[in-house]
Design a binder for these strands. Sequence first.
DNA 1: CCTGAAAGCTCTACAGC
DNA 2: GCTGTAGAGCTTTCAGG
Lengths: 200, 200
Amino acid sequence: MPTVALDETDAEILELLIEDASRSYREIADRVGLTAPTVSERVERMRELGIVERFTVAVDQSMLATQDARLVEVQLAPGDAGTLADELRDVDVVEHVIRTESGRVLAHVHAGEPEVRRLFADLLEGRDVLSYDVGGVVESSWNPDLRRGEFAISCVECGKEVDDDGLSLEIDDRRYFVCCESCEELFRERYAELQEGAEG
Amino acid sequence: MPTVALDETDAEILELLIEDASRSYREIADRVGLTAPTVSERVERMRELGIVERFTVAVDQSMLATQDARLVEVQLAPGDAGTLADELRDVDVVEHVIRTESGRVLAHVHAGEPEVRRLFADLLEGRDVLSYDVGGVVESSWNPDLRRGEFAISCVECGKEVDDDGLSLEIDDRRYFVCCESCEELFRERYAELQEGAEG
DNA sequence: CCTGAAAGCTCTACAGC
DNA sequence: GCTGTAGAGCTTTCAGG
């Protein structure tokens, strides 16, 4: 496992890649004042950490005849919302999921009205649903950008910045970062309890 | 201007790139049964057409300490919603905008509560706002994928599939496709009227 | 943690069909 | 519209600081 801390140079590299991932590492290296091999290695590290999820292509689906999407808005009792969002994330007609503090879950779904209704009939079964609405999407745009207040990984347990003493945990196919061993222990306990709660 | 029609092979290439844009053109060529130069040329064409908007990197911002985003939900009188969505698209703290048939506009905004309130105070000024709500985003995920019902460009005027007789228009920095010259003429008239309406 | 050089691949003309 | 080839340029490994 590579080093866990991130620095300003990593942030600059990410910004350049978000803007245009077809840039060469040499061009990026020139801009950030390094050489190509170093940039390559830093990107590789961020990929392993999961900060960089994937290299991809943004497609303007609005130009295609295919476009047939729905916006689904669900208001749940707050505790329930996290698991719904997790389940939606794995459905592949679901492009975008947003969950808010107040237990709202929004999903941008590429499917016709009946398919969407069927999907959500299953997903909402047994949940405490306060409201539920499906509407046709006319237009949607995506504008990727890096928002760098403090550019650092935060500890899932205490929220503090994770530095080189930090640890990276991989549990049930998801990665979590903690700043130290005591946070690791606390997090593992908390996680086990959450799991029991979800299953019980 | 290149040919306007798209075929199944273009769709396959796009799918492979969406999944992983760091693949080499040779690998893609092998999978779709072509050679690297042809794939390169097809991708270049789709870029020029605007189907491929950009090569980029998806970053898991939830791991970063930076995360501080709001979901803004606005319900407008239906006619008004398009122009609000257009204005939001150009604000760079706005990551995602979705507009529905019923005049709802949702925006995923990377900024604190006061900044968001200030931004929308300006944007909503003078509009017919039926409801307006701001909530803190806890989690958001993006899952790019190509939904290929009929994979073809559709005419902005008549909705029919655009083939090699089609035309590509660039008006006010946005690209539009029409299937034939009569649709072009009708669209230009309609566009001019819309512009007058918006300004008047 | 970085550089510099070197080997191996990848991209993209271009000529030919 | 596609292929094959060939040169330029890119990535990545590795020795060295």
